Deep mutational scan, measured.
Amino acid sequence: EETYEVDGEEQLKKVEKMLRDRNLDVEVEIHNGKFVIRAK
């Protein structure tokens, strides 16, 4: 499992696309105004 923490939606979209391109399962949560992306 990998976890990424990003600020802002633009970064979120980039990271999310990169992970989905690797066929990973992606979950996004918001913690303290930051996006936390978990990939399995």
Results as ranks from 00 to 15, higher is better:
Leu19Lys: 00
His31Gly: 05
Val26Pro: 05
Leu24Asn: 03
Glu2Arg: 09
Asn32Tyr: 05
His31Tyr: 12
Asp7Lys: 06
Leu19Gln: 00
Arg22Thr: 04
Glu16Lys: 11
Glu10Met: 08
Arg20Ala: 09
Leu24Met: 14
Val15Pro: 00
Glu1Asp: 12
Val26Lys: 00
Glu10Asn: 04
Glu29His: 12
Glu27Pro: 00
Glu9Pro: 11
Met18Val: 04
Glu1Phe: 14
Lys14Arg: 12
Glu29Phe: 14
Ile37His: 00
Val28Ala: 00
Asp25Phe: 13
Glu2Lys: 07
Lys34Gln: 05
Val6Leu: 07
Glu16Thr: 15
Glu10Arg: 04
Tyr4Gln: 02
Gly8Val: 05
Val6Gly: 03
Asp21Lys: 06
Glu16Val: 15
Met18Asn: 04
Glu2Cys: 12
Ala39His: 05
Ile30Lys: 09
Arg38Asn: 04
Asp21Gln: 05
Leu12Pro: 00
Glu2Ala: 08
Glu1Lys: 09
Gly8Arg: 07
Val28Met: 03
Lys34Arg: 12
His31Lys: 13
Glu9Gln: 09
Val36Glu: 02
Phe35Gln: 03
Val36Trp: 05
Phe35Met: 05
Lys40Glu: 03
Leu19Cys: 05
Glu27Leu: 13
Glu10Gly: 03
Lys14Leu: 13
Asn32Trp: 02
Glu29Ser: 14
Ile30Met: 10
Lys13Ile: 10
Asn23Lys: 10
Tyr4Phe: 09
Thr3Cys: 09
Glu9Phe: 13
Ile37Trp: 00
Lys13Trp: 11
Val6Met: 04
Gly8Leu: 11
Asn32Arg: 04
Asp25Thr: 14
Asn23Pro: 00
Arg22Tyr: 09
Asn23Gly: 15
Gln11His: 06
Glu29Ile: 13
Val6Ser: 02
Asp7Gly: 05
Leu19Asp: 02
Arg22Gly: 06
Arg20Gln: 09
Met18Arg: 03
Val6Gln: 02
Gly8Asn: 15
Asn32His: 07
Thr3Lys: 10
Glu27Lys: 11
Lys34His: 11
Glu29Thr: 14
Val26Met: 10
Phe35Pro: 01
Phe35Lys: 02
Leu19Gly: 01
Asn32Ile: 03
Asn23Leu: 08
Arg22Ile: 04
Met18Phe: 12
Lys13Glu: 09
Asp7Gln: 10
Asp21Trp: 04
Val15Thr: 04
His31Phe: 11
